[in-house]
């Protein structure tokens, strides 16, 4: 019997506090698998956000630093400047990265910081109880848009991958989804490429990962994956937006 799948040693044994079926757990695992396969677990420094993944440093078997809300790219910039040869990444939710931290992410990309940002887009503020995020979909009911998000009041959902792709300093931008085994496998490939971009010192990398939040969407974990397919993927198209020749 040969192993086809074993839980990566990139994840610590501690159980997560995530809700049942929350795909944060899959996203963590994919990043750690990719680093482990490249032998980089001991060479990486991650920056955790404020949000449900605030305790990512309890789960990821690498050196990590906690950040203030939205400021992970600024802290990662500091780490990069004193550790020019480490792999440095941020892991951030959509409240963190696309709302309070928009300035930090845009300017990290603009400066072409040689870091990677993994952006978990679950279309809601999870940790604080399901408030509307800039990424919440039109008509989506949240605790702060009880009749559904309205364009007249809140505009249309923000497509961060497309926005970041317009910035010259960002050399790798891809959007992936965790709604199915096939898409999870594709997400892993994109994460590997993003890490390669850093190994080759090519510039800023950004991977937007569509994720679920069954608890705050008010559905079962399985229905949440269906909701992603039916509602999120049509608005947030999957695929690579930008990739340097060296990692194609």
């Amino acid at each position: 019997m040969k192993p086809v799948f074993e839980y990566t040693r990139g994840m610590l044994p501690e159980e997560t506090t995530y809700c049942p079926g929350c795909t944060h757990g899959i996203a963590h695992r994919l990043i750690m698998e990719a680093l482990d396969e490249k032998g980089l677990l001991g060479e990486t420094i991650g920056v955790a956000p404020i949000g449900c993944s605030i305790l990512a440093h309890h789960y990821m078997n690498i050196d990590m630093c906690e950040s203030t809300h939205g400021r992970a790219p600024a802290i990662a910039t500091g780490i990069r400047r004193v550790h020019p040869d480490k792999i440095v990444f941020t892991y951030q939710g959509d409240g963190d990265l696309a709302s309070i931290g928009t300035g930090e992410i845009v300017h990290a990309a603009h400066r072409g910081e040689r870091i990677t940002s993994f952006f978990i887009n679950n279309a809601i503020y999870g940790m604080t109880g399901g408030q509307m995020a800039p990424t919440s979909l039109l008509g989506q009911k949240t605790t702060t848009s009880m009749d559904g998000r309205m364009q007249e009041l809140s505009g249309k959902p923000l497509r961060m991958a497309e926005l970041i792709a317009t910035i010259d300093g960002a050399v790798f931008v891809e959007r992936v989804s965790l709604d199915s085994p096939g898409n999870v496998r594709k997400a892993k490939k994109a994460i590997r490429k993003a890490i390669e971009v850093q190994e080759k010192k090519l510039g800023f990398g950004f991977v937007e990962i569509l994720s679920s939040c069954a608890t705050n969407w008010g559905v079962t974990p399985v229905k949440a994956l269906e909701w992603m397919r039916e509602n999120m993927i049509p608005y947030y198209p999957l695929g690579n937006l930008k990739s340097p020749e060296e990692v194609k």
Binding site: M1, P3, F5, G21, C22, H24, G25, P181, R185
Partner: peptide
């Protein structure tokens, strides 16, 4: 199954 498990509860072997 293991690829979708968010909690690292599944290992798979093949013969």
């Amino acid at each position: 199954c293991a690829v979708m498990c968010p909690d690292g509860a599944i290992s798979v072997y093949q013969e």
